[in-house]
Design a protein around this nucleic acid. Sequence first.
DNA 1: TTGAAAGCGCTAACAA
DNA 2: TTGTTAGCGCTTTCAA
Lengths: 332, 332
Amino acid sequence: MARAAGVSAATVSRVFNGGRVTTELAERVLRSAAELRFAPNRVARALRMQRSSVISLIVPDIENPYFASLARGVEDAAQRKNHSVVLCNSDEDLDKERRYLDTALAEQMAGVIIAAASRSRTDLSPFTGMPVVAVDRRPLGAAVDAVVIDNQHGGEQATAHLLRSGYRRVACITGPEGTSAAEERLTGYRVAMGEYRREQGQDQAQLRELIRYAESGTESGREAMRDLLANEEPPDAVFVTNDLMAVGALEALRAAGREPPRFGVLSFGDAPWVSLIAPSLSTVGLPSYDLGRASVGLLLERIAGKDRPQQTMVLQTSLQVRSSATGPAPGP
Amino acid sequence: MARAAGVSAATVSRVFNGGRVTTELAERVLRSAAELRFAPNRVARALRMQRSSVISLIVPDIENPYFASLARGVEDAAQRKNHSVVLCNSDEDLDKERRYLDTALAEQMAGVIIAAASRSRTDLSPFTGMPVVAVDRRPLGAAVDAVVIDNQHGGEQATAHLLRSGYRRVACITGPEGTSAAEERLTGYRVAMGEYRREQGQDQAQLRELIRYAESGTESGREAMRDLLANEEPPDAVFVTNDLMAVGALEALRAAGREPPRFGVLSFGDAPWVSLIAPSLSTVGLPSYDLGRASVGLLLERIAGKDRPQQTMVLQTSLQVRSSATGPAPGP
DNA sequence: TTGAAAGCGCTAACAA
DNA sequence: TTGTTAGCGCTTTCAA
């Protein structure tokens, strides 16, 4: 290539990397490159620079629409900055995750974006020198940038919306006890309920009978809902902390003849199908795409060598009003 | 690393690549490698071998569950053979697709798996030397292996199932005229209907009034269904060639008081949410995961240098019976 | 079976 | 501004 244009390899390199070259030479190089369909060999470049332009994206499962959307955000942002994205599905398996991390090292990748399989047991310590951004889940005690969702605020939003819509006894079905997202969303619920009851001068001790922990599947959502309906004083609305459980809750409600929006249902998640089911589910939408995009932003700053304090970005949820929680009164 | 083990670089290389080395030396190398947490530099390897172990996967959009599942199949299979997968979203945009293809070349990737944006205008000609497998869509006139779905057979399966379930006037809502998947599925419908009517000694000329072309969205599915119901002699079942249009059709049916399974609905696609809507949709399931897996199989054969005739694998659909097409008679 | 040496294509330091 | 040179870490002859 250099010979074809009658210049040195260094000049070719400079042309392709924005070095100082006279327009005449640059043109000659570009012309030859076009003729020969030449494009710089990125592998050689990566070897020489000790760093490729590939980002490793490690998620539990790309078939989960949440992570698909996140991945899309990552890929779009990366592509705009001439970076490629390697897709890795960890299946929440620490060993598998570990192998992907090792590969990222061996391939001298530019950086890693990871939704870690475990907050405490994912080991990010070998990554000195390679930038890492944690996304969706912030590993405990690892000195990495992170981008996460404000789950508590989302829980507050959801609960407040139900109360504002006129529901009075708002229940909550949340995920397994001890998982951080579920607990945070529940906290949001407690806070919003506490505030409301304080304003109303109501007793605050009775929240417990309105709360159910479930296993985050359709099945367990249905059971939890059935259980809530069996209360002495049953709720008139429910905040469910994920879409799948919400579908189960909906089924239990239909079986009991308590259909939305008379009975309010609000879920957390915004899966692409929530608008397709009947009634279309109002949800607290997750900024999954932006999560991906933002994590690339942080990662590229680190890759560029920017030395700033470790940082966590907290992205806000947004209420998606559809038809399952418009209010207990007969429609206007 | 070589020094640490007291051997030459060549020996280290042989240890990691299954060359002939005495057990004693091999052990020494492995021990040092473990101590130093050494792993061979894949970039240098790729440069030297003129080929990396990365596969480029080009799909229209990873947020489409069909391609997410396909991608998962690709990644699982690739990972098992120590290959990485680079994710590329073409958005059906030829320019964008072209840039990804160029990157694959510049990165000396091991091969490309592509669901091409266009059957005729996607240009795969620069890929002499780099293996390419077309997936889901077979480019016209490109000499590459391909893995596709048997759309026509799927259409036959769907239609035959409706007829077998007791529906008599089966309509079809298919995608835009001229797109190959839509036409093939429609062909399957025609074949199955023709066969049935021949057996019944019925007139075969009247099929046209049972067929509608739509724009493959919820909206246009609803309209097409409404239009079919306005027929002089309306259908009692419909085969819809994708899930989204089926949701629209379902809405039109509900509005007209003709609910499944009294009115049969069968769709083509098997999106993850089809079992969540009410009634749960019976579908012709697409082997998207296997599509991905199989394409990796073909690709790796080519990468290994296997010289065999160009090949197209046709994967079969499978009927997923749920509750929207159990038969016109009142349930047992 | 092992090691020495060359070279994959690029970029960075230096010299001209 | 341009060219020369060295070397990134590996695999692959070739010779020992």
